[in-house]
Design a protein around this nucleic acid. Structure first.
Lengths: 342, 342
DNA sequence: CTGAAAGCGCTTACAG
DNA sequence: CTGAAAGCGCTTACAG
């Protein structure tokens, strides 16, 4: 094991308290002589002292760790989110534990209990639908927790949300205005509230523009084995709706996968189609520079989730905290402007 | 705070020890009556008892946490590695803390000390060159630590390595055999041993095939602001070596970025060029289906890093542990065969 | 069959 | 100016 306060204290013939106070910069406040403080610091350096955070945590009841639960770190959206949240957490004096839930409730449950056992000070989570009750109970018990991305319909849970309806509406509306008449929508995990909103935004935009909502243009892809499922879905769309002239992808993962399909089937998607996507990864800018994109505000979401959870930790005050972040809808990946200004 | 063993013990009029043993499945061994055990379990369930892992860790000297330090979780290679390692760690009974080092030694240092303070049981790290001494010292002190990906030249540190020289050699050799005569190589962080090996593999393949190593075909991109730097580098290559007919990318990040350049400059890279890349992401299969790829064995690396670090934890025995994993060099992304069988 | 007690390495009132 | 001591919530010899 490492060096303990006790060892330093013994070496210097001081009490553990004196050493602890000095090393925690309470020396002046505790009226410990500058000379003693210097001796302590010197000795700690020599012995390469590192505080045992388990002991400290046990004592203070704080671990200085925040827990993050996301569906899948290999999803570029979540990895950038994780990075951002790590940075914010660090600034607030916390380190971050990241766990994947695989979008499975069982797994999410296990991560949640593990975090609680580890005495994590607060939890940030992009939850599956089914965890709602558990999360709600935690929050009601005064536990600092905040949801993002896959938030719930009701407003009783701390959350950082985004207007998914509006984002979808704006994208699809713009596609129509630029000439698309038969726009397909590709969703997955339709049961998620978030996804549902995107679906509704799509429908609203069509109806607003006097276009029909056509069932066979709407594909919901089971996320399990989506690589195969999307092929079937696109096949079906082309079979039933050969005049399809637009695709609205509700996640960048499906968009990328669709491009594989277009490529394999030698469909020149950059000609005669309007495309739109919720969020995007850099590769998409190369594959389809003209795609309309509703970019998730990663920075704002990151900042606010951490802010909310730390606020919950600091002030034990109740009350639901919820912020709504602006999605930037752009005409293309590189475009700086917001679509709404069209 | 949560429920403690003490509270359960008081409620049931038992000792803390009895409760602890029962809940840790030592009841039978300790000859605690089945009836008592049942009462304890029942009560724990009712009170929603969750063990405080800080306390347990402080006591046992084990945190059951492994630390992972990687340069950047948004890099697809590292995120898949992290996922894999998390899974393996879990199977071995550990949870994983992931930290980004940003390839900065200062940051890496801080993460390392943080992990030690948190009493992490072992560390897996893709290190920057400069951390060598620190890591070596830790290992010599008996601390379980293993490196991967960015390993060091000497063999004194536990590591899971890959034959970067051979991988590069095979890729470039195949490019030449398929007709390329002026192959550019794009590197970054050339100072890393790993990168250096890739560079040497490239040179060896050229020389073996009677081709000259041309300085102006070799671009080393400073990773800071690589998006801009690669543009300058490619500009320079096309200026000095207009006959360039092949590109060997030493990382998939640079490859993707180069495709942006090719696209912006309307260079049809799928015609008249031989391409090769170390590792790849799915988008590349769409952008350039004919690219030769040396795929990093993510699963094997993940399995072995965890195996080595847990072995170090379990058996305190010394001795350097090192494994060399096979890189699969393929003719194209979807190709199943190994290039060597050509 | 079960308990009393020490100890893991800290922090922090309390005391002088 | 500094110390003795309790306690955070566990585990685990030791004892009966």
């Amino acid at each position: 094991m490492g060096v303990s306060l006790k060892q330093i204290a013994e070496r210097l013939n001081l009490s553990i308290a004196t050493v602890s106070w000095t090393l925690n910069d309470l020396g002046d406040k505790k009226n410990i002589s500058r000379k003693t403080q210097e001796r302590v610091r010197q000795c700690a350096r020599e012995m390469n002292y590192k505080p045992n955070l388990l002991a400290r945590g046990l004592n203070t009841g704080k671990s200085s760790i925040l827990g993050l639960i996301i569906p899948d770190i290999t999803d570029a959206f979540y990895s950038t989110m994780a990075r951002r949240i790590e940075k914010e957490a660090e600034r607030a004096g916390y380190s971050l534990m990241i766990c994947n839930s695989d979008s499975s409730q069982a797994q999410e449950d296990r991560m949640l209990t593990m975090f609680l056992s580890k005495q994590v000070d607060g939890i940030i989570i992009a939850p599956t639908k089914l965890s709602r009750n558990k999360i709600l109970k935690l929050q009601e018990g005064g536990y600092p927790i905040v949801t993002f991305d896959r938030v719930f319909e009701d407003a009783n849970i701390n959350s950082v949300v985004v207007d998914n309806f509006e984002a979808s509406y704006n994208i699809v509306n713009s596609m129509v205005r630029h000439g698309a008449r038969h726009i397909a929508i590709i969703t997955t995990n339709q049961y998620l509230y978030t996804m549902n909103l995107r679906n509704m935004g799509y429908k609203a935009a069509l109806e607003e523009n006097g276009l029909q909502v056509v069932e066979s243009l709407m594909a919901d892809i089971p996320f399990n084995n989506y690589e195969k499922n999307i092929i079937d879905a696109l096949d079906s769309i082309y079979r039933h709706e050969p005049k399809v002239d637009g695709f609205f992808f509700t996640t960048h993962i499906l968009a990328l996968e669709a491009f594989r399909y277009f490529f394999d089937h030698q469909i020149n998607i950059n000609d005669g189609y309007q495309l739109g996507c919720i969020h995007a990864i850099p590769a998409l800018r190369i594959l389809c520079p003209s795609m309309r994109i509703a970019m998730m505000p990663v920075d704002e979401i990151g900042t606010n989730t951490v802010r909310i959870v730390t606020e919950c930790i600091d002030t034990k005050k109740q009350g639901i905290k919820r912020t709504v972040e602006k999605v930037v809808c752009k005409c293309s990946y590189t475009d700086a402007d917001n679509l709404e200004n069209e």
